[in-house]
């Protein structure tokens, strides 16, 4: 049986991790490669690197980082953040990324999803969607949730699936940073309406939240950052707890 995935997310700026991390065994707390290796050993199923730098050197720095991660890490990883062309994706995949995620660029140019799926295959194209519930309707937002669009979450997700996305990474802006749990109602709708896997993101605060998002939210994977970076939750403990609750995981 296919297991549910636990995915730590690392924010990257100029080739270094941002947001503090609390790992006493890290020699260099800002080195994404070292952190990635630790997560791989501790039972993470996948990793996501989200590049938030905006310098001209960005593309080269990111490609170098991807290469260094691919050299060391023996689990799959996705790279996202500012990817806007076939060429961007080509560079990242050639350097060893397994998947890429596109967000704003897909909203601005939906045909990009078709182009990427046709050239590289759906299996390596994740579409990330940030959405906020406003007056009972889930609306897609851009630039980390700052800029609203008139796209409905469920319609947009269905559209990108039809255009060839292999997976959806849904971040609820209402839940992100709250540590009060994932947006399970919206996730359950998304998961039942789509025929591709859905990754839940935004709101992880404790182990019960992960159980809930897999059971109530019907998520295929759950992504979180700070609860892992600050060691509030150990991945091994989390997986044991999930298994006790009847959720199939890799242990």
């Amino acid at each position: 049986m296919l297991t549910k995935r636990i995915i730590p997310c690392l924010d990257i700026k100029n080739g270094r991790t941002v947001k503090g991390v609390n790992f006493e065994d890290l020699r260099d707390a800002g080195d994404p490669v070292e952190l990635a290796e630790i997560y791989a050993k501790s039972g993470a199923d996948e990793l996501v690197f989200l590049d938030i730098s905006a310098t001209e050197e960005k593309r080269k720095t990111l490609a170098n980082l991807v290469r260094r991660v691919a050299e060391k890490v023996n689990i799959p990883f996705t790279v996202g953040g500012g990817i806007s062309s076939v060429e961007d994706v080509d560079i990242l995949l050639k350097n060893g990324a397994d998947k890429v995620s596109v967000n704003s660029s897909a909203v601005k140019n939906p045909d990009l999803v078709n182009e990427l799926a046709a050239k590289f295959g759906s299996q390596c194209i994740t579409v990330a969607i940030d959405a906020k519930e406003i007056n009972g309707e889930w609306m897609v937002h851009l630039v980390g949730g700052k800029v609203p669009t008139d796209l409905n979450l469920f319609q947009w997700a269905k559209e990108v699936e039809e255009r060839g996305a292999g997976e959806i990474l849904f971040t609820s802006m209402n839940n992100d940073g709250t540590k009060a749990g994932f947006a399970n109602k919206a996730l359950a709708v998304l998961s039942s309406e789509l025929n591709i896997p859905v990754i839940a993101s935004g709101g992880a605060g404790n182990m019960q939240h992960f159980c809930d998002t897999f059971i109530e939210g019907k998520a295929d994977a759950a992504l979180a950052a700070s609860v892992f970076h600050f060691k509030e939750i150990e991945i091994k403990d989390l997986k044991e707890e999930l298994r006790r609750n009847g959720v199939e995981v890799r242990l």
Binding site: M1, L2, T3, K4, D45, Q123, N195, P197, D220, A221
Partner: peptide, 13 residues
């Protein structure tokens, strides 16, 4: 089968 999520992505036995 199209009743399943496709692609299968993840860890299986």
């Amino acid at each position: 089968d199209n009743k399943l999520k496709v692609p299968q992505i993840g860890w299986n036995r």
